[in-house]
């Protein structure tokens, strides 16, 4: 279960959203400037809303009413940024392993070999991020977020920068992730077609407000 409530103001932009997803895959849709990335940042702890509450499978990450606001490093969200943000001075393998040393030792652990296998990263491990294609970078970013053993994956437009063939490929990787690792996913997209294939719940945002919610289960 994913629950996000936020009231937030950033200059002229006002966000007021309350979203509850019963399923494991929540899609945030809407035109650019609707507040989708801001919501992801609030879940990750990179933006602090004036009032808000974020809960993932029973773990409360933020609750301003009781003064609870976990710092980003304690939230254990695997964030796949729209601009990916791979570490340019580390090879693919070191990028993938970055979050592992900080992950708690108890608790479920994503198997490295399994994740590398599933995302097809084997041949890329010794390469530098600058030498990867767009689709390869996308898969490395997903793998890096996944291997930090997150309680939730956040994906900001994971398919936007790709051509149609790559898009289908990454889409099927994300589907496999969802099914194999059973980690809840919140992803942002402006294309309804890819949303319907992946999501269990959809929230459509516009001008900082939720204008429609749907459950596809």
């Amino acid at each position: 279960m994913i629950s996000i409530e936020a009231r937030h103001r950033q200059g002229d932009f006002a966000l007021e959203a309350s979203i509850r997803a019963k399923g494991a895959t929540l899609a945030l849709c809407g035109p650019s400037g609707a507040g989708k990335t801001t919501l992801l940042n609030i879940v990750a702890g990179l933006s602090r809303p004036r009032d808000g509450r974020v809960e993932v499978n029973g773990a409360v990450l933020l609750d301003t009413s009781v003064g609870l606001d976990l710092p980003p490093r304690r939230r254990r969200v695997g964030y796949v940024f729209q601009e990916l943000r791979l570490f340019p001075h580390l090879k693919v393998e070191a990028n993938l392993l970055y979050g592992r040393r900080f992950a708690p030792e108890d608790g479920p652990s994503v198997d490295f070999d399994q994740a590398v296998d599933l995302l097809g990263l084997g041949p890329l491990l010794t390469r530098w991020p600058a030498r990867l294609s767009g689709g390869e970078k996308q898969r490395v970013a997903i793998g890096r977020a996944l291997l930090a053993n997150p309680r939730i994956l956040l994906m900001d437009e994971p398919l936007a920068a790709l051509d149609d063939a790559r898009r289908m490929e990454i889409l099927s990787y994300i589907e496999k992730l969802r099914d194999v690792f059973a980690i809840p996913i919140v992803f942002v997209s402006h294309r309804l077609s890819e949303v319907e294939r992946l999501a269990s719940d959809i929230a459509v945002l516009d001008h900082g407000r939720v204008v429609e919610t749907r459950s596809l289960q």
Binding site: P72, G78, F81, E83, Y98, A145
Partner: peptide
């Protein structure tokens, strides 16, 4: 600074972010 944010979301405390991301770059 967005790389430092990415390291934070991966669980790195501030001194590690500096030692592994900021300082090498």
């Amino acid at each position: 600074a967005r790389l430092e944010q990415a390291a934070q979301t991966l669980g790195a405390p501030a001194p590690m972010v500096f030692a592994t991301i900021t300082a090498p770059l």
